[in-house]
Amino acid sequence: MCYYNGQKVTHSEFIRLKNLEKALANYDFLNMPVQSGFDYGANAVLKRIPGKMDFEIVQMEWGFLRGNPKKWPFFKTREDVSKMRSGYKDEKGKFHPSINFLNAMGEELLLPDKVYRDAALNRRCLILSSGFFEWRHIFPKNKRTGEPLKTAVKYPYHIGMRDKEYFYMAGISEEWTDLNTGEHVETDAIITTAANKVMEQVHNSKKRMPTILSEDLAWEWLFGNLSEERITEIATSQVPWEEMEVYPVAKDFKTALEPAARFTYEDLEELELT
């Protein structure tokens, strides 16, 4: 017999509670608002339990890492991953720019030899989000010539869904193991699609946005036995802009106590929302 929190429990119950404790200790998202970050942080992800019409919430590392050593790009160690993500100089002094696998374009998911193809066919998941941030680029005009300046002023925006505390982004996942240390993580990438009317104005440098799914599409993405055509159709679907709630936030939002707090910029033109 053992004790948990002063209560006498069986060995098996003790083990179950200790296992739960360990699982929770690894789930950072339980201690923070669910949110997509900018760094290679943790995502709260809905993952299908194999063979069941059921899912569990797990924590994954945002930044897709391929698990098959025989397929490019495969990174053997965490050090290699860090180098790839931040860019590095090799022994000959040649600079290799950073490559990121944070986002997967919905239109290209299933192209032959695409990094994400196998995951899109077999390991679709849902990234849980309460909102995300994007930068709007505004090019001020030269006071003398009236021409736009070359350097943009950037304003951050918070994007959420009206009346929804949580929503789903389409995602794909893959497990990766460090061949030196044995560190094992589940990683994911967020699917992106062409920006809708409001996101075209906010993320105006790239005109892309996450593929945000309705409840029905989310269900289908996770549990459906989907044709390639349907996968692409869902991956490239656009959430209606009218359902989004979009507003500017402070430029130091990343370090602010309330990153998603609304902020007013005197010189910032309103978005066109009619």
């Binding site: 017999m1 948990y4 209560q7 006498k8 429990v9 069986t10 119950e13 179950r16 509670l17 739960l20 929770l24 339980l30 201690n31």
Partner: peptide, 11 residues
């Protein structure tokens, strides 16, 4: 913040 679960005692 507190995380709770229901558990079963030895009885």
């Amino acid at each position: 913040m507190l995380i709770l679960t229901r558990a079963t005692n030895s009885n």
